[in-house]
């Protein structure tokens, strides 16, 4: 693919990934408005809609990041698998250096992909109708009604765990990819990455839990 080196490809994966981290955090802060009730939540959605062209630019950006990220990771994974055609009969994680999150990056990423498709079908592309006790609460109601369903909620939580797992490795990894990691700052970055991963999982998952307990 193109005439890019593995380092350059990885750097594209990193920068787009980082953009998506930003998105994930912004998205989460928006989601938290659900705790403030329907007005706040729907108002936020309307605010976004009213941005018009700006919203479309943001969407295009995030879509491009997403596609580039996916495209280059798939490309890299293929390159890397090819380099490692010869597998071992017995292989051990060397002195437990790499975490499960690292080893599961392609898996957690793939779960995120599947999730995103369903996520778009569930919310973005669905009619923004959500009737609770006879009243239509719009998007707010739609979210409540969808996540009230335990199967939906569990799948949502698993997906959020995948996002968290992805972050657990990914955030610090970007620093290595861009050459900003040193022996000195590594422990701090690794810790930040772990905290971020756990926080994102807990933050997002709190919503279905809240909904299931209250509705």
């Amino acid at each position: 693919m193109l005439k890019l080196s593995t380092i350059q490809k990885k750097q594209i994966v990193g920068i787009t990934g980082l953009a998506m981290v930003g998105f994930v955090l912004a998205h989460l802060s928006g989601n938290f408005l659900i705790y403030k009730g329907p007005e706040a939540f729907n108002g936020y959605a309307k605010f976004l809609h009213d941005l018009g062209a700006l919203l479309w630019m943001m969407r295009a950006g995030i879509l491009a990041s997403f596609l580039l990220h996916m495209g280059f990771t798939i490309n890299l994974v293929i390159t890397n698998r090819k380099a490692r055609v010869n597998r071992y009969y017995k292989y051990q994680n060397h002195r437990s250096e790499s975490s499960l999150a690292t080893q599961l990056m392609p898996l957690s990423g793939s779960i995120i992909l599947i999730y995103i498709i369903f996520h778009l079908l569930d919310f973005s592309l669905a009619d923004k109708v959500g009737i609770i006790q006879g009243i239509d609460y719009g998007l707010y109601g739609l979210v409540i009604n969808t996540l009230k369903d335990p199967i939906h909620a569990v799948l949502y939580i698993i997906s959020m765990a995948s996002v968290g797992l992805h972050m657990y490795h990914a955030f610090q990894s970007v620093f290595q990819t861009f050459g900003l990691m040193s022996e000195k700052n590594q422990p701090r970055l690794v810790l930040a990455s772990k905290v971020l991963g756990v926080a994102i999982t807990l933050g997002y998952s709190s919503i279905p839990v809240y909904i299931m307990m209250n509705f």
Partner: peptide
């Protein structure tokens, strides 16, 4: 050779 995925198995 493959690219680096920052798994640090090499260092270990």
């Amino acid at each position: 050779f493959g690219g680096c995925s920052n798994a640090y198995q090499c260092q270990a």
